[in-house]
Simulated assay, not measured.
Amino acid sequence: MASVTRRSVIGAALGAGAVAALAGCGDPVVWRSGRLDSDHWPGHRPRWRLALPKGSKAPPLVVVLHGRGGNADAAFDDLRLQDHVTRTGLAVASVDGGDLYWHARRSGADPGAMVTDDLLPLLRDESGYAGPLAFLGWSMGGYGSLLLASALGPRVVGAVVAESAALWTEPGASAPGAFDDREDFRAHDVFATSRTRVLARIPVRLDCGDTDPFVAANRAFARRLPSAHLTVDKGGHNTDYWRGHAAAQLDWVAARLRDGRGQ
């Protein structure tokens, strides 16, 4: 059983009373953060962050998976997802995932299992969310969002946003380091029928820029999963594109988590 640290980093330094005081200083977002001690990532203590709408009880939860080279800060420092928490009423959480593409690796690390086995129970305690959650990710995290949703299924996941998802239609085309070998690619291929059958029961939104290097693979995935809503519009594989789509994506997520009716 993984040991999970649930104290806020700020709380550990200042005490719970100071955290409450900071939350009341005009910021409509309540911040919590900490580190995980996870058996799924030996030798690492990944950081997590959580932005909650102030005064909300058990808000719907969005788990954000960052892209390659990112960390738990990217969702907030780069994409500014906290700017949409008050309007949507969503809680938004993020966690360090390294460059491991959110699945089990030969090294023994498994950031995907870290999310499902360690992070989600922690976030349930921290936010009080009770219903289906959503995944939102970009690039590596877009792939990871589809992968984890296909593993957890519609009882746990109520919506998925995969933007500029790092997808490949065959093992030889994947980026160096994304998979250990061809067998690893096949074991975690979101194009696989066993995974698309699950994803067909979950609302899936795909956004990709028209000059993004992954646009062809995203179009191919939309053909494989015709229930998904694909938007290809002007933009590339960069923070400007991802930040510019955040408001519409979180509005879309909020509608699906609240009404439970899917697409």
Rank of each mutant, 00 (worst) to 15 (best):
R7G: 07
P176A: 10
D125Q: 12
L152F: 03
G235C: 06
V160G: 08
T86A: 15
S3T: 15
A113P: 07
R197K: 13
A246M: 07
G34D: 05
H84C: 12
R224D: 10
P213I: 05
S194F: 08
P176E: 09
H188Q: 06
S56N: 08
S38F: 05
R197Q: 12
D78Q: 15
L50T: 11
A187D: 10
P226D: 08
F214C: 05
G141S: 00
M1V: 14
F191P: 00
M1Q: 09
L65N: 01
S164I: 02
A134G: 10
G98I: 00
A166D: 14
L22W: 02
H229I: 14
A159F: 04
L61C: 08
G144K: 00
S33V: 01
T231D: 14
R106Q: 07
N238Q: 07
P46T: 05
L199C: 05
T196C: 08
A151F: 03
L147A: 07
V215M: 12
R6N: 09
D110N: 12
S56D: 10
S94C: 02
G244S: 13
D189L: 14
L146S: 05
P226S: 13
P121S: 00
A162I: 04
W168F: 15
D210C: 03
R45A: 12
G112W: 06
P46L: 04
A21L: 07
D117G: 08
T231G: 10
S174E: 12
A91I: 02
Q249L: 01
G244L: 07
A72K: 05
V92P: 02
G131D: 12
P46H: 03
V253R: 11
A18L: 09
A74R: 10
R205S: 13
G15E: 06
